[in-house]
Design a protein around this nucleic acid. Structure first.
Length: 421
DNA sequence: TCTGGGGTCCTAGGACCC
DNA sequence: TCTGGGGTCCTAGGACCC
């Protein structure tokens, strides 16, 4: 049996941990740059606020309904996520951290009463971290997802649901909308509905051959999992990324090259940090810039440039040099740029790097400098030490807009709450 | 004024190898 | 009349997830 533990309205719940006064109020969290609604409390959902809605479009509505609004605070969410995962790890020998707010637990071999155990998991996470979770249990991962849905959406279940008998599974699938199934997205659900498939139960009545032909083996696996045949394995160790991307929309659109250089150098720096964290090198670098596609009346421009690197690297200095070269190759005057990004591609592990015959870079030196740089920044905070190309000084107009940012209660000394005695 | 960011997997088809 | 068999690698495009 597998359990899927999912944090309820995770980002909102994180904000509430240190703001219990918000517990019964509608709360939303915005995407980067304070753009769209990406998390909603139940009260906010009840008001009809939609996922992905641009915040500026409903600014008045939010104010009128006294909705508490927050910018994304990933330092906080990431840290609370780690704490949740480490608590969950105590309940299983096999934990798969599936996303920032979800994990699978393999319950095979545990001699426990499943429902009781699920209750215990939920209560412990709530007590240790203050985050409410839903626990779904089923014989396959996809069925655990289904169970989780019933745990969360049916109030009487109070956050727990166990699919432990064929009759219960059958019943659950008959009322389960096809587009809610894990692995069935917009396209497949449209295809299936055109064939009269409305529920998960309808879906498993189809022929395997048809499903495989139209939805590849991925779709067939989903079908088998719904039928109770487990084919998705637990992934215990996260594998190294094959592509790493750092991209941001700007707080304000930019026309000049200089601020774009600072932004791109900063994104290249983040990519290099991510590469070093997973002990790998990039063999290729891509830089892209584009204008604001929503502005129909403004001239549009969008381009990217790919550099093949002579030798794979994760040196910030080297990546910045290539990134700026790429930027200058695609930058054109006369446009209002809204977004830029840097992608590290062709990623190889550090023990399988192919050197270049005419390499003129002192790699040992770069490695040593990066090690020192990381050590200092890890101790004193990001960008304590940085490359000048990233730009100096605060109040950069290209930086993210984050007007409603909450304190980083758990990761920043200055933000730790004080308790009056 | 204002519209997010970061990933994975699978398949088909073309080019190439012996 | 008839023209082999078996394989790899790469890319673009399409689907999905949070």
């Amino acid at each position: 049996m597998f359990a899927l533990v999912d944090c309820n309205n995770f980002y909102v719940s994180c904000e509430r941990v240190f703001r219990p006064d918000l517990n019964d109020r509608p709360v939303v969290v915005l995407s980067n740059n304070d753009g769209c609604i990406i998390a909603r409390s139940n009260e906010a959902k009840a008001l009809g606020i939609k996922m992905g809605e641009p915040a500026f479009k409903i600014a008045d509505f939010l104010r009128q309904n006294r909705v508490a609004v927050f910018s994304s605070n990933y330092a906080l969410y990431g840290d609370l996520s780690h704490r949740v995962m480490s608590t969950l790890g105590r309940f299983t020998p096999e934990l798969e951290v599936y996303s920032i707010d979800e994990a699978f637990l393999n319950l095979a071999g545990l001699s426990v009463r499943l429902e009781e155990y699920a209750w215990k998991i939920r209560a412990t996470v709530l007590k240790n971290i203050g985050i409410p979770v839903s626990v779904g249990v089923g014989p396959t991962k996809v069925l655990a997802k289904v169970a989780n849905h019933y745990a969360k959406k049916v109030p009487e279940n109070q956050g727990i649901y166990v699919l432990d008998s064929p009759a219960k599974i059958d019943e659950a699938l008959k009322f389960f909308a096809i587009d809610e199934v894990w692995g069935i997205g917009r396209q497949y659900s449209r295809l299936l509905k055109s064939r009269g498939v409305e529920t998960a139960w309808d879906f498993i009545q189809l022929q395997d051959g048809w499903v495989k032909k139209r939805m590849t083996v991925v779709g067939l696996r989903v079908k088998k999992e719904l039928e109770g045949v487990s084919c998705l394995e637990m992934k215990l160790v996260p594998s190294a990324k094959k592509a790493i991307c750092t991209s941001r929309s700007f707080g304000e659109s930019q026309t000049e090259l200089e601020p774009l250089r600072e932004a791109v150098a900063t994104y290249a720096t983040r990519c290099a940090e991510k590469l070093r964290r997973q002990h790998s090198y990039a063999g290729m670098l891509m830089v892209f810039i584009h204008t604001n596609g929503f502005k129909r009346n403004e001239p549009q421009y969008e381009r990217n440039f790919v550099c093949k690197l002579p030798t794979p690297t994760n040196s910030t200095m080297e990546l910045i040099r290539y990134a700026l070269f790429a930027l200058e190759a695609i930058y054109r005057k006369g446009y209002r740029y809204k977004k830029a990004g840097v992608l590290a591609l062709d990623i190889v592990s550090e023990n399988q790097v192919q050197g270049a015959l005419f390499d003129r870079v002192d790699r040992a030196k770069h490695t040593a400098v990066m090690k020192t740089l990381d050590a200092i920044n890890s101790k004193y905070g990001r960008d304590t030490l940085k490359i000048a190309a990233q730009g100096i000084g605060e109040n950069k107009k290209w930086k993210l807009r984050q007007e409603k940012l909450s304190p980083s209660y758990t990761t920043k000394w200055d933000d730790i709450i004080t308790v009056r005695v």
